[in-house]
Amino acid sequence: MKYAIVGVGGRHAMFRRAITQTHAEGNDLVALCDVNETRLALSAGKVPKKGNGIATYEAADFERMIAEQQPDTVIVTTPDYLHHEYIVKALKAGRNVMTEKPMTVDLEKLRAVLEAQQQSGKQLTVTFNYRYTPARTQLKDLLMSGVIGDITAVDFRWYLDRVHGADYFRRWHRY
């Protein structure tokens, strides 16, 4: 499976590592794309060397990246307010798309994404990386081991603090 990632900020590293290290067999990261050349070079330098290295593209060359690299799936980890732009372009180019949550930030953009997905017939997956943080992974391992017995009910509550939680949701609507 061939992958390309657009947006090489903090969120993309988890996907890059999964494709190039954790699940490298049968998967190939063929391109990275971003507006920031320094971040792009830094990320490309962390991809294990294959041949001439990984292809990198400026954000303005996103469509060229898809045409030249022919990824099966495009992973979108840009800032939230830009998700729809790259999701729609990738779907229209006939690619499956994986994006970090939120898929988009308003109803108009959501409609554009859903229309592109329906017209393309391609898969659109929205991920939620929080479930893979070390504490959550350890908890899952503990529960699955059976050490506490059979699980008959789960009550999950997540309290957002006023600093991070409020800021996180505020960022969705700042543009």
Results as ranks from 00 to 15, higher is better:
residue 151 I to C: 04
residue 105 V to E: 01
residue 105 V to L: 00
residue 117 Q to E: 08
residue 100 E to W: 07
residue 164 H to E: 10
residue 138 Q to M: 13
residue 114 L to K: 06
residue 170 R to G: 02
residue 120 S to T: 07
residue 117 Q to I: 03
residue 98 M to E: 09
residue 125 T to W: 15
residue 145 S to C: 01
residue 106 D to Q: 02
residue 157 R to K: 11
residue 133 T to N: 13
residue 168 Y to V: 04
residue 163 V to D: 13
residue 136 R to V: 10
residue 127 T to N: 12
residue 170 R to M: 05
residue 147 V to W: 06
residue 104 T to M: 01
residue 114 L to G: 01
residue 156 F to R: 15
residue 171 R to G: 00
residue 126 V to I: 14
residue 95 R to V: 08
residue 131 R to V: 14
residue 101 K to A: 02
residue 122 K to R: 12
residue 105 V to G: 00
residue 135 A to W: 01
residue 141 D to E: 14
residue 139 L to K: 05
residue 135 A to P: 11
residue 168 Y to I: 01
residue 114 L to D: 12
residue 171 R to T: 04
residue 104 T to Y: 00
residue 151 I to R: 07
residue 110 L to S: 07
residue 160 L to S: 04
residue 141 D to Y: 14
residue 117 Q to D: 02
residue 161 D to K: 03
residue 98 M to K: 12
residue 170 R to D: 12
residue 121 G to M: 04
residue 98 M to R: 10
residue 111 R to S: 03
residue 137 T to Q: 14
residue 173 H to T: 05
residue 146 G to V: 02
residue 110 L to P: 00
residue 139 L to T: 06
residue 96 N to Y: 06
residue 100 E to I: 10
residue 119 Q to D: 10
residue 164 H to W: 09
residue 172 W to G: 00
residue 154 V to W: 11
residue 123 Q to G: 10
residue 143 L to H: 06
residue 153 A to G: 08
residue 124 L to K: 09
residue 170 R to Y: 10
residue 166 A to W: 15
residue 148 I to M: 08
residue 156 F to I: 12
residue 133 T to S: 14
residue 122 K to Q: 12
residue 95 R to N: 13
residue 117 Q to C: 06
residue 128 F to E: 15
residue 105 V to D: 06
residue 158 W to H: 12
residue 125 T to N: 14
residue 115 E to D: 11
residue 93 A to D: 00
residue 164 H to V: 11
residue 152 T to H: 14
residue 140 K to A: 05
residue 139 L to E: 12
residue 152 T to M: 08
residue 101 K to E: 06
residue 112 A to N: 10
residue 101 K to T: 11
residue 154 V to Y: 07
residue 141 D to L: 10
residue 126 V to S: 02
residue 139 L to D: 01
residue 99 T to I: 00
residue 139 L to C: 04
residue 150 D to E: 14
residue 117 Q to H: 07
residue 94 G to V: 08
residue 155 D to V: 03
residue 157 R to D: 13
residue 137 T to E: 13
residue 96 N to V: 05
residue 170 R to K: 05
residue 132 Y to D: 13
residue 127 T to H: 13
residue 95 R to D: 09
residue 164 H to S: 11
residue 147 V to E: 14
residue 121 G to Q: 08
residue 156 F to N: 15
residue 166 A to V: 15
residue 137 T to R: 15
residue 130 Y to G: 15
residue 139 L to A: 00
residue 161 D to S: 03
residue 108 E to H: 10
residue 103 M to P: 03
residue 125 T to D: 09
residue 104 T to A: 08
residue 156 F to D: 14
residue 140 K to C: 01
residue 166 A to P: 10
residue 169 F to T: 01
residue 112 A to L: 03
residue 126 V to R: 03
residue 94 G to R: 07
residue 102 P to V: 02
residue 124 L to P: 01
residue 104 T to V: 08
residue 101 K to G: 02
residue 108 E to L: 09
residue 111 R to P: 02
residue 125 T to L: 12
residue 149 G to A: 07
residue 173 H to C: 04
residue 99 T to A: 07
residue 161 D to E: 03
residue 113 V to I: 11
residue 136 R to D: 12
residue 101 K to P: 07
residue 133 T to V: 12
residue 131 R to E: 14
residue 108 E to N: 03
residue 94 G to M: 02
residue 111 R to W: 04
residue 106 D to E: 04
residue 116 A to W: 09
